[in-house]
């Protein structure tokens, strides 16, 4: 087989392929479904006049550059960074991919924009903790909890998320972090029942862990399967199942302590 000559053309192609893969892996780790990754990367390649093939999996993306006859020129792989949901990045990449059709972008501009999107600020920690605490109270209210139970769930979700963030920072496995978090939250909320502030239904105790629900993996799992990306869909579904299982283990540990 003949070696690919590193003509300026191929060099440029490699640079483009690198940017495309960077976009794809960034989208994947930010929590986009496989169909979105595929259409966005194809759209970008199209805007630059390249034709490509993609193989997308949970942890890596493969990209093949095709020539005019649809034959492969080269294939490269890039590993997806660990999945941390960031919808602001997804939104930014979507905007960027559409604006490629309105104005010409250079590869360097693309690279700078991706760099910017990768480092977009997150909400301040206190705000996220407060809003997630309120979300916990919301779940409790949806389950017919009383105002006192709502207050307990607020504190439980707030501290539960704090524990999860700290555990992730400390380098714990994500599932173990979820377990710690669920355990903390249910331990705090369960005290409402023990103090006689909750009826036999234990609303606060049950709803305090709901902020951990793996909503993105579960919903993306189904969108992937419906799109025909069955392998990724099954993988995501299993990830969602494992997170749910960790939540269940955490809540059962505190049930053991409280003898519910």
């Amino acid at each position: 087989m003949a070696e690919i000559e590193n003509t300026p053309d191929v060099e440029e192609m490699k640079e483009m392929a690198d940017v495309l893969l960077k976009t794809g892996t960034l989208l994947m780790s930010a929590g986009a479904n496989t169909g979105r990754v595929r259409t966005t990367v194809h759209r970008m390649a199209e805007a630059f006049g390249y034709s490509i093939d993609l193989q997308i999996s949970q942890r890596s993306i493969w990209l093949t550059m095709l020539n005019d006859h649809g034959a492969s020129i080269f294939t490269i792989v890039r590993v997806t960074p660990s999945h941390i949901i960031n919808f602001r990045t997804i939104s930014g990449i979507s905007k960027m991919s559409w604006s490629l059709f309105e104005e010409p972008w250079s590869i360097h501009q693309l690279r700078d924009e991706l760099q910017r999107l990768e480092q977009l600020p997150r909400f301040p920690r206190w705000l996220v903790l407060t809003l997630v605490g309120l979300a916990g109270a919301g779940f409790c209210s949806l389950a017919d909890g009383s105002p006192i139970e709502l207050a307990f769930t607020f504190v439980a979700s707030f501290l539960g998320l704090y524990v999860r963030q700290e555990a992730l920072k400390g380098g714990f496995n994500p599932y173990v972090s979820v377990y710690f978090s669920a355990f903390t939250a249910s331990l705090i909320a369960g005290s409402a029942s023990k103090l006689g502030l909750s009826d036999s239904q234990n609303h606060a105790y049950v709803t305090s862990v709901l902020f951990l629900i793996p909503g993105v993996p579960l919903i993306n799992s189904f969108s992937d399967i419906l799109d025909g990306n069955v392998q990724n869909g099954v993988t995501r579904g299993f990830v969602g199942f494992l997170i749910s299982f960790s939540i269940a283990l955490g809540i059962l540990t505190s049930a053991l302590i409280y003898q519910f």
Binding site: I85, R88, V128, L131, V132, A135, S157, L161, F211, V216
Partner: peptide, 8 residues
């Protein structure tokens, strides 16, 4: 909204 904040 809580999840919106969590998902940035």
């Amino acid at each position: 909204l809580g999840f919106a904040a969590l998902f940035n």
